[in-house]
Design a binder for these strands. Structure first.
Length: 526
RNA sequence: GGGCUGCUAGCUCAGUAGGUAGAGCAACGCCCUUUUAAGGCGUGGGUCAAUGGUUCGAAUCCAUUGCAGCUCACCA
């Protein structure tokens, strides 16, 4: 309280402090996240991953060791054929089997679950996320959870009582805290018949009516249902922190029951928080994986650089819903980030409180080390115009920036790629233009207009004799007024000739930016 | 029915370890009797949903109410 050091109030730091406070001093803190790879992992799922990454980094920044585990819950059942998969008829036949036994009809990997996992594992390092992956199907099938399953069986009544507290319909009399995949069909259409009090479980395959007794220690078929599986793994891994979506965090939701059931396994519920869903703005496609067309981290990285991508999540409290925009908001997000960077480097003033906050956001937004020099500061909107003037030629754009430093080039290139993707794919039609070339058909003009264009070309040819763009702009009007052409008609025809549209960026500045080498060949055709 | 979140400028939203209400867009004005402005500078605009409480001080904390949204009570 009395120290004058500013304590970070960033949510990641606050949660890191909370973990240390509630869990005590430890050699290593285990932070966990996970998901069922039953479909494309979308940007909403990414929120959990990045939330854990940020808290883990906050703990490390406090000098703590952190184990960041990411659980692929890939021993789940294939319930529904996703719409974005080829060969749905083939996949139909695999319903009710574990998703690791379903073929990947996209040809990405040996099986469907692995295909979805690989998509994520390949991209996460690019945004600075490097967890230790745990594969639950492999663990279950290797009988690593035999003791956990036995413990659940031993405490069946206790677990049942906890679950029943929140259910509208109590669990049936013959309920068991496990489920079994049939060794005959691989499907989970099975009924547990008996447990011998040790490791022997007898089940019936309801499709074939075959019965079998399996040993939990050396057969791969049994698993725990989600509400029991989760707390069992908390206990086994000693999870100190794991956030969850609001669906888990409602009263009676799985976090609620898990924090009770974990005691059966001799563990303690981790520190957690609820994160809200995110939505998409400015492009088609839903975020949910069941609809087929989903927005993934790959899609976001088309338009946002890795730092920007982190920045959006860093700067928003996790329990707040927000939209990832692909519309004009993209400009604002980039400009907000640049402002944040300027404040960090002291290029823009801010009061102490704001500076501390923005600086922390900047640090946490970085993929790796924090840069020692700021990026080349250029308004994103202007960058978009430069790219369009040069038809997306990034090298040509950078060549026009004579004050750019070597250390800034790579970062700017990365940004140009995203900007160009955005312009060509998502920007509104009004925003786009393409400078005419020699191949562009000349537009039809009246004699008067032709005279004006020639006069303009004359002025452009000696544009360097003007003191600045403004003086050039003022003089430009005489091209029209000298011959009594309405100035508005004049501008219209010039824009038409240059970019094929009736309006555009403020003309004088625009012509200056393009340079006479680009403008004269166009105008001289009239 | 339970839980959670939100309600701040015309619009979209920042802002909660309590300390003089902010930004972007829109509007308006000027640069400019010189575009149908994608430029620059500037201006105006708010009983922070309502009521009550705690406090020297509340958008912020507490309670109640209203409205809106999400979520759980199937599965995971």
């Amino acid at each position: 309280m009395s120290n004058n050091k500013i304590v970070s109030t960033h949510w990641a730091d606050i949660n890191a402090d909370k973990i240390i406070r509630e869990r005590g001093e430890k050699d290593c803190y285990t932070c966990a996240s996970g998901i069922t790879p039953s479909g494309t992992v979308h940007i909403g799922n990414f929120r959990e991953i990045i939330s854990v990454e940020l808290v883990a980094r906050a703990l490390r920044d406090k000098g703590k060791n952190v184990r960041f585990i990411y659980s692929w819950d890939d021993y789940d059942v294939f319930r529904k054929v996703p719409k974005n998969m080829p060969e749905p008829e083939l996949l139909e036949g695999y319903l009710r089997k574990p998703i690791t036994l379903v073929p990947d009809t996209l040809g990405r990997a040996d099986n469907y679950a692995r295909g979805n996992e690989l998509d994520v594992e390949k991209i996460l390092p690019s945004v600075g996320v490097n967890p230790e992956y745990l594969y639950q199907a492999a663990r279950y099938r290797d009988s690593e959870y035999a003791e956990g399953i036995k413990t659940a069986l031993e405490h069946k009544d206790e677990i049942k009582a906890i679950l029943n507290e929140f259910r509208t319909q109590p669990l049936p009399e013959d309920w068991w805290p496990i489920s079994v995949f049939s060794s005959f069909t691989d499907k989970d259409n099975t009924t547990i018949l008996a447990w011998d009090g040790e490791y022997g479980v007898t089940y019936r395959d309801d499709d074939t009516n075959q019965e079998e007794t399996i040993d939990l220690r050396n057969t791969p078929y049994a698993k725990l249902p989600w509400r029991i599986d989760w707390p069992m793994r908390w206990s086994r891994e000693g999870v100190d922190f794991e956030p969850a979506g609001k669906d888990h965090h409602s009263e009676g939701g799985s976090f609620d029951t898990s924090k009770r059931i974990v005691e059966v396994f001799g563990g303690k519920a981790p520190v957690s928080f609820q994160y809200d869903f995110i939505s998409i703005k400015g492009r088609g496609g839903k975020i949910s994986s069941s609809s087929g067309e989903v927005i993934s981290l790959y899609d976001v990285l088309e338009v946002y650089t890795p730092e920007l991508c982190r920045y959006m999540f860093v700067g928003t409290r996790p329990n707040t819903e927000f939209a990832i925009s692909f519309d004009l908001d993209v400009l604002k997000i980039y400009e907000d980030y640049d402002k944040c960077e300027r404040i960090y480097f002291g290029l823009q003033s801010a009061n102490d409180k704001k500076k501390a906050k923005e600086s922390r956001i900047y640090e946490l937004s970085q993929v790796k080390d924090i840069p020692t020099t700021p990026s080349y500061q250029i308004p994103f909107r202007h960058l978009c115009n430069l790219l369009q003037i040069h038809s997306g030629d990034i090298e040509a754009v950078i060549a026009t920036l004579d004050d750019i430093e070597e250390s800034q080039i790579e970062r700017l290139k990365q940004r140009c790629v995203c900007a160009w993707n955005w312009i060509t794919t998502f920007s509104p039609e009004d925003f786009r233009f393409a400078l005419a070339t020699e191949d562009t058909p000349v537009v039809e003009v009246t004699d008067k207009e032709r005279t004006a264009i020639k006069a303009l070309a004359e002025k452009v040819s000696k544009i360097e004799t003007y003191e600045n763009a403004k003086e050039f702009g003022n003089d430009m009007y005489s091209c029209a007024t000298d011959i009594e052409l309405e100035t508005s008609d004049f501008f219209k025809i010039v824009y038409k000739a240059l970019i094929g549209k009736e309006k555009g960026p403020k003309l004088a500045q625009f012509i200056e930016t393009c340079g006479k080498d680009k403008i004269l060949p166009i105008l001289s055709r009239y």
